[in-house]
Design a protein around this nucleic acid. Structure first.
Length: 492
RNA sequence: CGGGGUGUAGCGUAGCCCGGUUAUCGCGCCACGUUUGGGACGUGGAGGCCGCAGGUUCGAAUCCUGCCACCCCGACCA
């Protein structure tokens, strides 16, 4: 059995197997890069959704749902946005099939059923949402409008990658409208903070909060705030973005409101989103050679109980203890699975739940029944201990908290030791090649230089950190003056 | 779309250069029995349009042509 993961760097997709599979839709199908999220993977997404949704609602947002299809004329209304996504759109041109007279039992597109106007499958929903907002906003009393949508979007990327860049993905997209520029900017920053907090507290992933350069900015945005994470292989991953859109969309869709003073003004907008890519980030941040390692706050199963027995009599005695523990743990909000399958041996189950990243495992055998103990094993450290049955609940609760913190600390430590300051282009290339991670360097602030560095090294500017300190220096490529360092990295 | 690589059972593969019995092996799957404190063992069994189409040949997994798919690297991107 070769389920054990031997080489971490080889391919993260081995870890994904528990969570997701590539969609096997049809032979010769043009559909590529779609994924099927398995129940266990989807359960993680549901937990993420629940926590994010709670945070959104606590900050005054509401959920709504907008259509999947965007008429082309609507889509092209905001020019920059349309241009940015034009190269990766799926387009609906017909609405009916008919039996193919030349091909028994087959269907073909009915040429008479051509749509007058093509429909774009949303790559993002700004257009359709702003078209709708136009009808909802008349007065300053209608503002702010704070709406979020949980949806799927389609981006027909030339090259897809499981989890990180699938052709269809799930996400949430928030779209807000405000009376003033200041208020919109505060909203964009607030959501940026919420993402950083979510990543830290639930995913145990440390992020760098920063702003994107003009070159990396969202199409149609004035500024893009990003949370950047670092994966175990030294590559950076954009984990979430929040955009200040200015009045671009309000102007494109003519969304105006009457101020208190009776003046007509365009509204100010934000949009922000995170996607199923976060599951990829989770996997690539914490997992080890034995498989997934899930932070307790997101693990669908936090504790698994495995019985060890020779006969039915023993199993019954163990089940009694297991059921009791299950009840007590559930009472304090711990999700527990008692795996009493008799079709698999304990060793098999141990390996299986390690692969699935279950944070804690309790094994109960005849010896434990005699001694009033259980064996408790941690997924993160792979260490084991015998503890008293009557102490299980308190120890488990504490340990889940501790594992959550340990995972974060470990990831933070890795991240911090992989931010390297360099002062020359030679040094830059050397660090990039040998160590990876973020490279903090001076840059002259031009798009040309950024593109040139990317061309030469494949590294891009991930962000200008919000907490960056002013510091005189010279651009590592051009030698022109620079007032602060920016963070470069190779990215997914 | 450009460069490189790979398609053999659910998964991983041998065979291909040099054409020739019934296509190899491991995992997984099914049945029965013995097992169960770290991925059990034995016996028996099922499962294959050898990516697709065409060609060469007495004969093709193997040689030739075309196509398709997937993987890696670029351009694009959350």
């Amino acid at each position: 059995m070769s389920k054990k993961i031997t080489k971490r760097s080889e391919n993260y997709s081995k870890w994904y197997n528990e969570l997701v599979v590539k969609a096997d839709l049809a032979e010769n199908s043009a559909v590529r890069g779609m994924m099927v999220i398995k129940p266990y993977g989807y359960a993680i997404w549901e937990k993420m959704q629940a926590e994010l949704d709670r945070m959104f609602k606590e900050t005054g947002h509401q959920n709504a749902y907008f259509p999947l299809f965007v008429p082309k004329s609507l889509f092209e209304a905001e020019e920059k946005n349309a241009k940015g996504f034009a190269k990766e759109c799926a387009i609906v041109t017909h609405y009916r099939l008919e039996t193919d007279p030349d091909n028994e039992g087959k269907l073909r597109v009915d040429p008479k059923a051509k749509l007058e106007e093509e429909l774009i499958v949303r790559p993002t929903s700004e257009a359709i949402i702003w078209k709708t907002y136009k009808g909802w906003i008349q007065s300053y009393r209608d503002l702010p409008l704070l709406i979020n949508q949980w949806a799927n979007v389609v981006r027909w990327e030339m090259r897809t990658r499981l989890f990180l860049r699938t052709a269809e993905f799930l996400w949430q997209e928030g779209h807000t409208a405000h009376a003033t520029s200041e208020e919109a900017l505060i909203e964009a920053k607030q959501m940026h903070d919420i993402y950083a907090t979510f990543l830290k507290d639930f995913m145990a992933i440390p992020v760098i909060k920063g702003e994107k350069t003009e070159n990396e900015r969202f199409a149609g945005a004035i500024s893009t705030f990003t949370v950047e994470a670092l994966m175990q292989d030294g590559k950076a991953l954009q984990a979430g973005t929040s955009h200040f859109l200015g009045q671009n969309f309000a102007k494109a869709f003519d969304v105006k409101f009457t101020t208190k003073e009776g003046k007509q003004e365009h509204v100010w907008a934000t949009s922000w989103g995170v996607t199923t890519r976060l599951i990829g980030a989770l996997v690539m941040t914490h997992s080890d050679d034995n498989g997934l390692v899930l932070p307790p706050n997101l693990a669908p199963i936090q504790v698994v109980i495995v019985p060890i027995h020779r006969n039915e009599e023993q199993l019954n005695a163990i089940s009694e203890v297991a059921d009791d523990l299950t009840k007590k743990l559930r009472a304090v909000g711990v999700s527990v699975k008692y795996d009493n399958r008799t079709t698999h041996k304990p060793g098999f189950k141990f390996a299986e739940y390690e692969l699935k990243g279950v944070p804690l495992r309790i094994a109960i055998g005849p010896r434990d029944i005699e001694n009033g103990t259980v064996e408790l094993a941690r997924r993160d450290t792979l260490s084991k201990d015998y503890i008293k049955q009557n102490e299980v609940t308190t120890i488990v609760v504490d340990l889940l908290k501790e594992i959550q913190e340990t995972l974060y600390t470990k990831a933070l430590n890795f991240r911090d030791t992989h931010i390297t300051e360099v002062n020359s282009f030679e040094e830059f290339k050397k660090v990039l090649e040998n160590k990876g991670g973020f490279i903090s360097a001076h840059w002259d602030g031009t798009v040309e230089t950024e593109k040139e560095i990317k061309k030469l090294t494949k590294a891009s500017i991930r962000c200008v950190a919000l907490d960056v300190k002013q510091e005189e220096g010279v651009c590592i490529l051009t030698g022109k003056p620079s007032s602060k360092r920016v963070l470069f990295a190779k990215a997914y």
